[in-house]
Amino acid sequence: MQGDSGGAEARWERLAPGVVRRRLPGWDATVGAIAGEGGVLVVDTGSSLHEGVEIRREVQELFGPPVTHIALTHPHFDHVLGTAAFAGVQVYGAVGAADLLRRDRDELRHDAVRHGVAPDVAAEAVELLVLPHHPVSGELTVDLGGEVRVLLANVGPGHTAHDLAVLVAVPGGPEVVFCGDVVEESGEPQAGPDALPHAWPAALDRLLALGGDDAVYVPGHGAVVDAEFVRRQRDALAERFGVS
């Protein structure tokens, strides 16, 4: 990491060279950042414009260049409402996520308020919400310069109908997989009204096929886990929802 990182250094966990993540307060949601020679990609943006501004500032402290790309793992308030804090970036999401966010702005705001976001804070973030510019229907590679290429993979449906995983392998480090809420460590995986339980185990099978046994898996909430944890969660979800 470059520059004087100050307090940001203590809040961000280093996963591999140029790859970090932070667990945000409140809902323990993960945000990540991946730096290459030509750009920085942020994974998810928090639950408010304030969180988005803080993420943007801290990532620039850690790496130097401004954020150039954002990948949204799924369209829930605690992962997308900070996106408007990043001016001029390229935003990626699973195919259909942009249409959902455009159509269901009121529900997004209500969901944020139900979970404790102040009404005025939620309203501002939803009003300024930036929708994904680039829909990912299969797999898409983002070149961040040097030897850093990030794979965006539409692994859903599962936790939602629009689940996107972010995979990166950098020289000198393990492959890192940002899972979104398809994987959760700090509690039982949450299956809300927009979940597709029958498809969730298959989404985890796809995730494991992409990352493999030696990858570091970063849940949407909670501590970093390994492939064996993901397999156990896959089997528990299959039993919970009565699918194979």
Rank of each mutant, 00 (worst) to 15 (best):
residue 238 A to R: 00
residue 180 G to D: 08
residue 55 I to P: 04
residue 138 G to D: 14
residue 162 H to C: 01
residue 43 V to H: 10
residue 209 A to H: 05
residue 225 V to F: 06
residue 237 L to G: 12
residue 174 P to Q: 07
residue 203 A to C: 04
residue 77 F to M: 00
residue 58 E to I: 15
residue 140 L to P: 00
residue 151 L to Y: 08
residue 109 R to H: 06
residue 185 E to P: 00
residue 31 V to D: 01
residue 100 L to I: 06
residue 98 A to T: 09
residue 49 L to A: 01
residue 89 V to A: 06
residue 17 P to L: 09
residue 44 D to A: 03
residue 107 E to I: 14
residue 132 P to E: 09
residue 153 A to Q: 11
residue 239 E to W: 00
residue 216 V to Y: 02
residue 110 H to P: 00
residue 194 D to C: 11
residue 124 E to S: 10
residue 201 P to Y: 09
residue 78 D to H: 15
residue 61 E to F: 07
residue 7 G to Q: 05
residue 126 V to F: 10
residue 53 V to W: 14
residue 65 P to M: 09
residue 154 N to V: 07
residue 244 S to A: 12
residue 142 V to F: 14
residue 217 Y to C: 09
residue 242 G to I: 14
residue 189 P to A: 06
residue 26 G to H: 08
residue 187 G to V: 08
residue 200 W to V: 13
residue 51 E to P: 03
residue 44 D to W: 04
residue 63 F to G: 11
residue 21 R to G: 01
residue 20 V to D: 09
residue 221 H to A: 04
residue 173 G to H: 07
residue 159 H to E: 08
residue 57 R to C: 00
residue 132 P to F: 11
residue 129 L to R: 13
residue 120 D to I: 10
residue 51 E to G: 01
residue 53 V to Q: 06
residue 169 A to H: 05
residue 14 R to K: 10
residue 215 A to V: 07
residue 191 A to H: 07
residue 177 V to F: 06
residue 3 G to R: 06
residue 113 V to D: 11
residue 81 L to P: 10
residue 149 R to H: 12
residue 215 A to C: 02
residue 21 R to P: 05
residue 51 E to I: 10
residue 51 E to Q: 15
residue 79 H to R: 03
residue 69 H to K: 07
residue 203 A to Y: 00
residue 191 A to R: 04
residue 57 R to A: 02
residue 135 P to Y: 15
residue 135 P to L: 04
residue 37 E to F: 12
residue 11 R to E: 15
residue 66 P to K: 01
residue 222 G to K: 11
residue 137 S to A: 11
residue 202 A to I: 09
residue 85 A to Q: 05
residue 145 G to N: 03
residue 173 G to V: 11
residue 81 L to W: 12
residue 124 E to Q: 14
residue 133 H to G: 13
residue 45 T to N: 02
residue 190 Q to A: 11
residue 7 G to S: 02
residue 27 W to Q: 00
residue 17 P to R: 06
residue 208 L to G: 01
residue 179 C to G: 02
residue 58 E to W: 12
residue 18 G to N: 11
residue 208 L to M: 05
residue 23 R to F: 15
residue 87 A to L: 13
residue 33 A to D: 05
residue 138 G to H: 04
residue 211 G to I: 10
residue 119 P to S: 08
residue 159 H to F: 13
residue 190 Q to W: 15
